[in-house]
Amino acid sequence: MASHNDTARDEAALWVARMDAGVWDEHDESELQAWLDVDARRSGLLLQAQAAWLALNPAQNLAREAETPPPRVYRRRSFFALAGTALAASVAGGLFWFDDSTRFTTQVGEIRRVPLADGSIAAINTASQLNVTVAETRRSVTIDRGEAWFQVAKDAGRPFVVEAGSVRVRAVGTAFSVRRYDNGAEVLVTEGIVETWVSGAEQRAVLLKAGQRAFVNETLEIKEESAPPSSIDRALAWRGGNIDLAGERLSEAVADLNRYNRKQIVLADPALGDERFDGVFRTDDPEGFAMAVHSSLNVRVTIADDAITIGSAKK
């Protein structure tokens, strides 16, 4: 089977070489057709080989860069302008290289995972914006809004500091998330230890270990709690595009889901908000969530173009 495939692949390459000669008559076409007809998979092999060959064309013939939509990353200095071997070398490591600050923005419902220049990884949640600077002596991230989780590459010489309003979180090599709120930030630690404090009060920093979460208040109040690992995993399910509920109140679940979608869910009957709910849902599937509520709580669900209404208002 494998050898049959290898043979067919080599024959596909031969056809590509023949087509590449630029001379093509009816006889060639019918011979090729006969070859293709032997096995349905051959058309795919031929296409793959022809595309691979055409991909060797100089880039300007292939890439219609002017026509492609602008990427959602905005850089203060153009990354692709730094073409050449430095680019090739950094990309080859699977890393981004930028010696300047880079801004990442996600739209509502968008979740992105981005490798950073130092080998760290950021997962950026819905409707968020952050600036990342990887410099020689420091790595800093500013969360303008939203939430991100970081897996920080170990580098004792370059502390990794996240700023969310006046809240600061520092890590050396660890994994944690920071969600910015109007009045503070929530920090969840999945690996290692981080240090968190409020700007101007570094002497009152608090250490958080894996499995701990803390809400850090802009007025210097730090509330920490030890959370069972499963609850942290669940709280970070968004990295896989999920919302993981285990007995959350319906009102909280709806608020959470509404972070990800323009089509908002409305609880028409406020009493439903106290119902407890379980299950794993897609962040981008509010309809699916509403239907699950419908079937498990036996309430009415109305799906319109702009909103989903759960329950009917009590007369």
Binding site: A13, V16, A52
Partner: peptide, 12 residues
């Protein structure tokens, strides 16, 4: 054409 064929196989 034969050399192109070798090239296509290498690219694949």
């Amino acid at each position: 054409e034969k050399q192109v064929w070798i090239g296509v196989k290498a690219i694949q």
